[in-house]
Amino acid sequence: MSLSQADMAFARELFGNIPDLTTRRMFGGMGLYSGGTIFGVQLSDGRIMLKAVKGPFADRMSDLGGEEWTTMRKDGTPSAMPYWTLPDAYLDDPEQASALAFEALAALR
């Protein structure tokens, strides 16, 4: 499955307040960058995720109802990735989504 042009346009519009916003297609999805720093991804199924390594911002994403991205290894064990789903309430509000993305970027620097 691959992202549609409409899905990609939605993510770009949602994070339109992020300075130096760029995107790059990857693995059927898309990376979201600010000034060359990846702060999020949009998976091939359209889900938007923000990068949050272990710590206060990851805890905040969990508290907001975000779910950590997990994949299955070849041996069947789960592997957690440092990305959390953008909570549904933020999908309808570019201002709030961008504010949360700014928090993600601050935690990455």
Rank of each mutant, 00 (worst) to 15 (best):
A6Q: 15
A6L: 13
D7M: 11
D7E: 15
D7T: 09
D7Y: 07
D7S: 12
D7A: 14
M8D: 04
M8Q: 15
M8A: 14
A9Q: 14
A9M: 09
F10L: 11
F10D: 03
F10A: 06
A11F: 12
R12S: 10
R12V: 01
R12M: 14
R12N: 11
R12L: 12
E13C: 05
E13Q: 13
E13M: 09
E13L: 08
E13R: 12
L14M: 07
L14C: 04
L14V: 00
F15V: 00
F15D: 02
F15N: 01
F15M: 01
G16V: 02
G16Y: 01
G16H: 10
N17Y: 12
I18V: 12
I18E: 08
P19R: 05
P19S: 04
P19Q: 04
P19D: 04
P19F: 00
D20E: 13
D20A: 13
L21P: 07
L21H: 06
L21Y: 04
T22E: 14
T22C: 06
T23Y: 14
T23Q: 10
R24H: 09
R24L: 06
R25M: 09
R25W: 02
R25P: 07
M26L: 15
F27W: 14
F27V: 09
F27G: 04
F27L: 14
G28T: 02
G29E: 03
G29W: 03
G29L: 04
M30R: 00
M30I: 02
M30Q: 06
M30Y: 00
M30F: 01
G31H: 01
G31T: 02
G31S: 10
G31N: 05
L32G: 02
L32D: 05
L32Y: 07
L32C: 04
Y33E: 10
Y33L: 15
Y33S: 08
S34W: 13
S34V: 06
S34T: 11
G35M: 07
G35L: 04
G36E: 08
T37R: 15
T37F: 08
T37H: 14
T37S: 14
I38M: 15
I38E: 15
I38F: 07
I38L: 14
I38H: 11
